[in-house]
Design a protein around this nucleic acid. Structure first.
Lengths: 215, 215, 215, 215
DNA sequence: CATGAATGAGGATTCATTCAT
DNA sequence: AATGAATGAATCCTCATTCAT
């Protein structure tokens, strides 16, 4: 029946709009300062409806995170695939660019990924969901490890421990994104975000190419 | 008068103990889950007294931050000075190590430095104090810029924009510290924090040494 | 039509299953802590259906009560009939035993009979239904009055006011049941429920037999 | 200092007024339908103040109960003492009358004593307080046991188990009070509360006097 | 008849902040 | 200066009830 299909669609629609409202508000005011009331209001549903779709405020955040991470991983994987034919260092550049593009398009995710660390979060979110998030957040790293490993095999990179090298790479890029996240800090620093990011990629890759890089 | 001197000392003493109590509690439970009541109780003063010394809960955090940053800058400066006679790359290593040591000793600062970015924080803290914090947080960078610049002058580093290079360096190290902050993530990643940090320093310095590093 | 008959049966069936689910849940968690959702779920119907059969949560309770009371009255009446040939005091014992057996089998009714007293209950239940419940709850007493009256006529009991005597009897037994209802209290008191009940019956009957019992 | 003394008095005063407001509202609307807001309003304090004095709504009820029970026990003890010189049966009558007077004056306690039985109550009340309440609620019974035992020793009562007899007595009186508590039931029954109570006392004492009473 | 998604008025509790003493 | 009692707005969450399909 069409009715049923439409119902399903409306439900998904509503779920999306709640998630979207939460994304906006959590980002604008920070998770703690956003209220479930305001989420409901912006999503144009009642407060009860929010709880119909998500068991708690924290769970709302968790879904936001998971959704974001899954999208990110998908984009990273596709970037890797596209660059499969290129040299390892070019592939790594592709990966880094995809990473950048993602957070450039959706800068909100960054602070959220960090918010997840705090204690109370784990308690208020179904364990299963939490597990999924951690899994997802590892997948990006796994991709990078693969590329570095290939680079080592191909003689492009000279690092004894590809896993550590990938971590380093990943961490450094996160650092740049985080640093440039805050408008004030961006202004203070007086360097362009994208330019800084690309310099970092170049420097790191250059650092990985020579011998004894990560003893 | 001695009385006056004693009074002054007691006041400083009390201020310190409030700050100390706040530090402990904010770190243990996170800023939002710590209450002013609990701070007062642990500092063994009344709640009113807390407000006598600090205009708001956020201001308490701001002072904690400022205090921490000042200590950090002092340590960095001293590390720089100690290494003044060494080559620029060695000096940068010294700086990086001092940075690491600081956060290794007081790992709690890290999350707070990040918390500062959030919206409501700025509103609840005297603008002047906020400004001071930003200033302080830039001073570390300034130190690094100086070292890089000297390295360029000495022909050790080959980067056209020392400021950008220093930023990159700093951001990358922050990224490592942040990544390894969370116990779960540390476990997932399976790499030692200090080793990862040192590899990053090595890789970055190596990257800075060659030509066309940060075009 | 067979269809019609089946429909009727299904409706009764469904009604029963809702009532049964409510009984279980109200008893397990107390009326206030049980939710209509949980009743619907356990009865395997939708929440809307519950409201199709019962106008409110309170009405659900009222029907439970009424149903229980009707069953009780039936059992009491049958106990009376069975003992019709015996002496009045023996008949009264039979009645008391039937009363005990009923609450021993379904101890949950007791607290609910009491819950009914509370204010909001009357407002949320159709007046007619409420009236029926009160009527039913009186019928047991009427039975007891009849037996006592017969006892007076036969010279077995010596009380000028059979109605009052029956009330007294009834109230006393209720008191025992109520006292022994709570596990903690039962433990504290350190007396067996059935033994206490039977002693009460004996003592009361003995008290009714002599002269000047309820002046 | 006078100031301090006055402060203390005011605190006690406020505590009392909150307790009093709670008593009224819990009784008028039932515990579940009374709100902490309404308690605060009637006590003419803010909601926060209520929580300053009592850790939870349930604790408020617990204190009401404890206070009531302690007053009751005190009155029962004093009734016993006054009647120390009289025969055991007269002393028991005194005790019963004091019991009646208490609930006649403060009929609210009765429903509360019962409310305590429900599950969630125990969880929301400090264990220590709960224990105290149970203790208190036993003391009345202990008094009755003492009197009955003396009656047995004096040859006035002929019951092998004074403890059971006292329970029975107590339970029966509770039953009468409970039955007559509800206005509607009182009307239905058509018997005067006090008269019914006194008849019960007479009948029970008479029942205890003869032989084989509670074999 | 039956469904179950949506509602939204409450409810208990917390806590930063004030202020009379 | 120091106290700590009082405040009350704010917050998350619940759940009986309705109603379009």
């Amino acid at each position: 029946m069409t009715t049923r299909a439409r119902r399903e669609r409306e439900k998904r629609e509503r779920r999306r709009s709640i998630l979207q409202a939460a994304r906006e508000l959590f980002f604008e005011n920070g998770f703690h300062h956003a209220t479930v009331d305001s989420v409901a209001e912006r999503a144009e549903v009642s407060k009860g409806t929010v709880y119909l779709y998500f068991v708690s405020k924290e769970t709302l955040l968790a879904h936001l995170l998971l959704e974001g991470l899954e999208a990110l991983v998908a984009e990273l994987a596709s970037a890797c695939a596209e660059a499969a034919a290129l040299s390892a260092d070019q592939q790594l550049r592709h990966l880094a660019r995809a990473y950048f593009d993602f957070f450039d398009r959706d800068p909100q995710y960054f602070p959220f990924l960090m918010a997840m660390d705090r204690g109370k979060f784990q308690e208020s979110v179904p364990a299963e969901l939490y597990e999924e998030i951690l899994q997802s957040s590892l997948e990006g790293l796994t991709l990078a490890v693969g590329v570095v490993r290939r680079g080592v095999d191909d003689g492009v990179f000279a690092c004894p421990d590809p896993e550590k090298a990938a971590c380093m790479f990943w961490a450094a890029l996160n650092g740049v994104l985080q640093l440039m996240e805050h408008p004030l800090r961006r202004e203070m620093v007086g360097v362009d975000k994208k330019a800084l990011y690309e310099s970092s990629v170049d420097t790191l890759i250059k650092g990985l190419e020579g011998p004894h890089a990560d003893g």
